[in-house]
Amino acid sequence: MAQVVYRARSCYRFPPVCGGSGVIWLVRIGLAVAALLFIARAAPVALSAGEPERVDKRIAITFDDTPRGAGAFLTLEERGPRLIAALAAAGVRQAAFFINPCRIQSERDGALVRAYETAGHVIADHTCTHPGLSRVSAAFYLADIDQSQARLRGRPTYRPWFRFPFLDEGGSDLVKAQAVRDGLTARGLINGYVTADGYDWNMERLTIAAKRAGRTIDMARLRDLYVETHVGAAEFADALALRATGRHPAQVLLLHETDLAALFLPDMVAGLRKAGWTIVTADEAFDDPIARRTPQVDFANGTRIQMLAWEKGLEGSRWYDRTDGPVADRLFEERVMQGARLQ
């Protein structure tokens, strides 16, 4: 009786099943419905009109000019351990330190580099003596790299990355630029480029000058300017990269081994995470597809993103405004020195 009732209801709602091929037709409907349900579950949920698109914002932390001279607040003996502790507190499991081996002139300097390695960070080449490529010959420059390579290769966390001092890849001398690129390739080195730059070295310079002049420095405002500037640098680079490449590549943030980094790095990383950034290793960042691109531009200088934007011919500024010296200096004076509270 139950079968008769089911068939009667089926004939009322789905008349084709009452014919000779009705059972087959019903099976086909069931299979179609099951397929649609499977597709619906597998497909990504469409965003509503008011929901922002998710983006993959990844950034690695890197430091130049190790070992570096004294800053405004910490001794050289204090700064290294403080910076290592700051990286640990911020949850940065791997940063990259670009080394100038000719500056390692004492046991303290050597111990500092070993401490970075012991803490799980990696080291790479920043030339031996820190020359600007535009100021020397390609032969001199490559010989300087050979000196640093002799001291760096074989170290436990060494990576075959080379970063140009001053981000100077040869300027307008394209013949020299290509000669050095060929020399890097012959030595098994890849360009350890930068994509995001907040001119932290300039902020450190201004802080040292203020301290030496006996001026009062508002440390809370200095921290806020440091954090805001570097989060802004990452955001600027990401927006420019999207225009230049059509995607969100892993970014490489340029910092220097400064007192400001040792003091404020956890605040900066917290600011990046609040803005939606994930901190990744330098290994991951330099595995991004843009690592395999060499922008062909008339002036080889600056960040990888800037040069990619120039290569594409994008209109508008390719430079983060806080990497302009007068702008950065004025912000420091207005934001840090006016109404300062702490010495």
Rank of each mutant, 00 (worst) to 15 (best):
K211H: 11
V5N: 07
A89F: 05
G188C: 12
Y158L: 03
R163T: 07
R13N: 11
R28V: 09
L255K: 07
V136E: 03
F63T: 04
E53S: 08
Y320K: 13
T278N: 12
M337A: 05
A237E: 11
D238W: 02
D287A: 15
F162E: 03
A261F: 01
Q343P: 01
T303I: 08
G188H: 06
Q338C: 03
M307I: 07
I61N: 11
R103H: 13
T75Y: 10
V33C: 09
G20R: 15
R135S: 10
L37N: 02
R151P: 00
R247Q: 07
A196Q: 09
I59W: 07
F332P: 01
R330V: 03
F236V: 04
C18G: 02
E53H: 07
T207V: 02
D125V: 06
E204P: 02
S48D: 11
A179M: 12
I123W: 02
F14I: 15
A111L: 10
D144S: 04
R153C: 08
A2S: 13
S134N: 11
A177R: 07
A115E: 13
E235L: 12
G276Y: 08
G91V: 01
A86I: 02
R54Y: 04
R54F: 04
A2I: 13
V252M: 01
A88Q: 14
S48C: 05
V23L: 09
I24M: 08
G232P: 04
D267N: 07
G325T: 09
A239V: 09
G71Y: 12
K312R: 15
P16N: 08
W277D: 09
A49L: 07
A85N: 11
H130F: 07
S134W: 12
G154M: 01
E78R: 15
G22P: 10
R330H: 08
L87E: 10
F140K: 11
P249T: 05
R221W: 00
A139E: 13
C18P: 02
V5E: 10
R205K: 13
P101E: 11
T185F: 12
G22Q: 14
V23Q: 11
D109N: 12
A177E: 07
I279V: 15
A150R: 14
A60N: 04
A85V: 04
K211W: 04
R293E: 15
A60E: 12
L253F: 04
Q343N: 10
D298E: 15
I145K: 10
L83P: 06
L184Q: 02
K312G: 03
R108D: 09
A143P: 01
G183H: 04
H256G: 11
R243W: 05
G183L: 07
M268Y: 02
